[in-house]
């Protein structure tokens, strides 16, 4: 499939090498599922920077909720202290009774010691956890 695309488009591309405006790129990428965007982080550094912009992540999250995507884009501060957007599986898939388990997450003696719920608004839960590194997740919950 790859080569078919390349053959078909190589000539056309050769004449239009100017960069696409960021505004156009973000309008396209906001429509790409988080799962695919995770992979696209390795396309280039400027693209990764675009995918990690707060405004981009917000719009993507907004769309994912509208389209009921099961994997959402969240923020994560990695060991290299570069804050990037990460995909995350909505927890209700793994924890169908997620809401019921919230009090446990706040219990410091619990195995979920690193997790803390910051707040919940309109079906979104802002969720913080310290396992291997800092993560703030914004999670959709039914």
């Amino acid at each position: 499939m790859g080569s078919r695309f390349q053959r078909k488009h190589r000539l056309a591309m050769a004449t239009t090498i100017e960069k696409l405006p960021e505004h156009l790129l973000s309008n396209i990428l906001v429509r790409v599922p988080a799962r695919t965007l995770a992979q696209m982080r390795s396309v280039s550094r400027p693209l990764n920077a675009l995918l990690s912009q707060l405004s981009f992540i917000k719009s993507h999250l907004h769309r994912s909720i509208e389209t009921n995507d099961e994997i959402l884009l969240v923020f994560k501060e990695t060991y290299s202290s570069e804050v990037t957007a990460h995909p995350s599986i909505s927890p209700h898939l793994e924890l169908p009774n997620f809401i019921d388990q919230l009090p446990r997450l706040n219990d410091p003696l619990d195995e979920y010691v690193g997790h803390r719920v910051i707040g919940a608004v309109n079906g979104l839960i802002c969720f913080y956890y310290l396992e291997d590194d800092y993560t703030i997740q914004i999670i959709r919950c039914r």
Binding site: G2, Q6, I17, S44, P46
Partner: peptide
């Protein structure tokens, strides 16, 4: 990835 770069005219710096 290579096709995405080509389609969106992005230079590979990875």
């Amino acid at each position: 990835l290579e096709e995405v770069r080509e389609a969106l005219r992005i230079e590979n710096d990875r």
